[in-house]
């Protein structure tokens, strides 16, 4: 019968026209058996959170190369929470300095990935994290 599949939203927030990375990651996650929704470019935090809700995703992966991550990422987190989607695994990647990654991590973001990351590593990390979340959810039921 249908087995639960990991559903991932790959999103491009803000004024950033470069989505080769996002598309590459989306394709790799697809090839690892996940169901991947891609938003397209120039999404506002509200739009990303709304899509996450409508699609009931397990993971939101943000791709950003514009440098606006410190203002956009926390807002996306707030918008997700406001919609009852605070439980999703929130991750991302792009050009993000290590200090910023640490700050975002302390704000509740999971691991963030920089340039040169092995794509399969991202997929395996997501797989492991979501399975953890699902087993916690199962324990609560």
């Amino acid at each position: 019968m249908s087995k639960r599949k990991i559903k991932v939203l790959v999103a491009k927030p803000g004024l950033d026209g470069h989505d080769r990375g996002a598309k590459t990651v989306a394709t790799v996650l697809r090839d690892q058996g996940m169901e991947v929704v891609y938003t397209g470019l120039h999404q506002t935090p509200e739009m990303i959170a709304e899509v996450a809700l409508q699609e009931d995703v397990d993971v939101v992966g943000l791709s950003i190369l514009s440098g606006a991550h410190m203002s956009l990422f926390p807002r996306i987190r707030e918008e997700l929470k406001a919609r009852g989607m605070g439980h999703v695994l929130l991750t991302g990647g792009g050009i993000i300095p290590v200090e910023d990654m640490e700050t975002l991590h302390s704000q509740g973001f999971a691991k963030l990935f920089g340039p040169g990351t092995n794509t399969v590593e991202i997929a395996e990390w997501i797989q492991a994290e979501v399975e953890k979340l699902w087993s916690e959810e199962g324990a609560k039921q």
């Binding site: 599949k5 697809r30 090839d31 690892q32 058996g33 991947v36 891609y38 938003t39 397209g40 699609e55």
Partner: peptide, 11 residues
């Protein structure tokens, strides 16, 4: 093959 999917209609 992989069971995965890329859902792109929303774009």
């Amino acid at each position: 093959f992989s069971g995965g999917a890329l859902l792109g209609d929303r774009i």
